[in-house]
Design a protein around this nucleic acid. Structure first.
Lengths: 329, 329
DNA sequence: TTGTATGCGTTATCAG
DNA sequence: CTGATAACGCATACAA
């Protein structure tokens, strides 16, 4: 009647192989070990089906080979893509990811930072909205899309440049009267610069523009009203729209079509993010594409860098324009 | 010159509070402790900013409060949704999720099972394709969409019922000649039953049907050829299509429209999964919706159940039909 | 009820 | 190059 014995340990392996515990550890960690000993140990490991215990190692070394990623959710395709690439970048370096979904909940954002500390993760990558989030001092911390202070590296797409690019592109495509639309938190973060870049381009090019910005609390129907208010004898006053995100662009295009406005014939629309249908097919709308893979790679290499304090406090990565059927081309 | 001291431990707290180590542990774990002691300890915890160390606890108790989720990726919106709901279900029960992306790579599937064992996770939820994957004996294991053996609970949508429902729905909507199309691995799994249910319904209803199934290795263009072959003087031979997944349905609809076939006027299309635009907007196509939240909830409650061996070996959860613009309604 | 002491599995330090 | 042994932070059985 075999007792329910738990997983074999290094001590078990050592006994089985007839060597010392330390030798087993050295074999497992790929250190210098005599060939004879090594093969004895490896055989014993096979026989016993030994798997090393992460907790023991973490306790001893105070390193977990784990990075926490704090992000709203995985339903938004942009976040899904980000999670995906960050995970790949971590895996490549032999790190695990501890995923934390905040659902945009501020208290959850703080709780997850605490949980990450309890788990002694080796670093945190966070995309958050809580305006008074406290950044832990004792653990490498990198943020996405949001600047905290010069000592907390922020990684983002070049949102300003993307906004500029959108304005320029609409002008190129023949637009004479454009508008920017967005909805979101009042928090000033990197994506806020999309508007700034767009406005700057319009001013520079002498392109007439309007800005329509909604706060989170305001209903979507405000956009419909805005559009209706800008209809004159069956035609929309704008022939080009730059919209804060692809998702919002998609929603607004539905409204436009419902109003009998054709896209892109009557009005051309450019979104932001670079969302593809089902994650891999064509772009959902014409868009400014975020360099998600580069962002992920940069986040990971930064958070794992030995000298975090000497890293740039803001890194903006180049975006590109992509056709998605809602512009003339 | 303060030495770089590492995070405070229970011993530090005990010293600070002037109590014994065990008392601190009992306070932290919410056990019965005298009010006086409790407040002294809590004060000390505050003062020191103590965070308990997960590794120490795990090592001692052999429980990690973590479940591994093994899944291809998070880019596919269906998987993204699944990850999301499983995470919520786990969080509700105070469990963490260790996410493992396989990218459909068979060797990765095995490696992640090993990694899960090394991390002493309390259970594994897996959506895999490796035909000869070895299921660990000593750890609760639940699979999604794929049956291994009666001792490994499998959770899935009612794929057969969904297929049936699709056939019935197309008939209801006036279709006289239908087809089923899919692409995927040759592995027999629960989703394979979508075809079976559809065929059964067609037979039952006396609805003429065809089946077009591609293997992973075959190019998408085979579908285009299939459709072209079924054009007769500008009209498609089918007036209804049931397609294995929403994503494939979306692709095929693009081809159809490119051929001048109107959807849903000329041919109605029903997909499977229930993918919504940007995860939250309208359905991408008319579809059979998987009960993702229920699947997630069932996976979690099953893998955490004390008596896994007495659980049903297959649980199929009810699907529903949803309109998504590619059927007449 | 609180204090004390042991051991969980591992790595690292020392001595051989 | 290998063996023995002492921590790491915590939970718990046992003693007070």
């Amino acid at each position: 009647m075999a007792k329910e014995k738990s997983a074999p340990t290094m001590a078990d392996v050592a006994r089985e192989a007839g060597v010392a515990l330390g030798t087993v550890s050295r074999v497992v960690n790929g250190q210098q070990v005599g060939e004879e000993f090594r093969s004895k140990v490896e055989a014993a490991i096979q026989r016993l089906g030994y798997q090393y215990n992460t907790s023991g190692r973490a306790l001893r070394t105070d390193r977990t080979n784990t990075i926490a990623l704090i992000i709203p959710n995985t339903i938004n395709p942009y976040f899904a893509l980000l999670v995906h690439h960050i995970n790949l970048a971590l895996e490549k370096r032999n790190y695990k990811m501890m995923l934390c979904f905040t659902e945009y909940d501020r208290s959850r954002e703080s709780e997850f930072i605490q949980m990450a500390q309890q788990n002694r993760v080796d670093g945190i990558i966070a995309l958050t909205y809580n305006p008074d989030l406290t950044i832990p001092e004792d653990i490498p911390f990198v943020t996405i899309d949001r600047f905290f202070s010069v000592s907390v590296p922020c990684i983002a797409a070049d949102n300003f440049g993307g906004g500029w690019m959108a304005g320029q592109k609409l002008a190129e495509l023949g637009c004479k009267n454009v508008a920017f639309m967005r909805i979101g938190s009042t928090l000033t973060n990197e994506p806020s610069k999309r508007k700034d870049g767009f406005v700057a381009a319009c001013v520079e090019l002498g392109l007439p523009f309007e800005v329509m910005a909604l706060e989170d609390s305001q209903p979507f129907s405000e956009f419909e009203r805005f559009l209706c208010d800008h209809m004159q004898n069956g035609r929309l006053a704008f022939d080009g729209l730059f919209i804060g995100t692809d998702m919002l662009a998609w929603q607004i295009i539905r409204v436009l079509r419902g109003m009998g406005v054709r896209v892109p014939e009557d009005v051309q629309v450019i979104g932001f993010d670079g969302i593809q249908m089902f994650g891999v097919l064509e772009y959902a709308v014409s868009t400014i594409v975020q360099p998600v893979q580069e962002i992920a790679e940069t986040c990971v290499s930064t958070v794992l860098s030995k000298h975090l304090s000497t890293m740039p406090s803001l890194i903006c990565l180049p975006v590109k324009y992509a056709f998605g059927g809602t512009t003339k081309e």
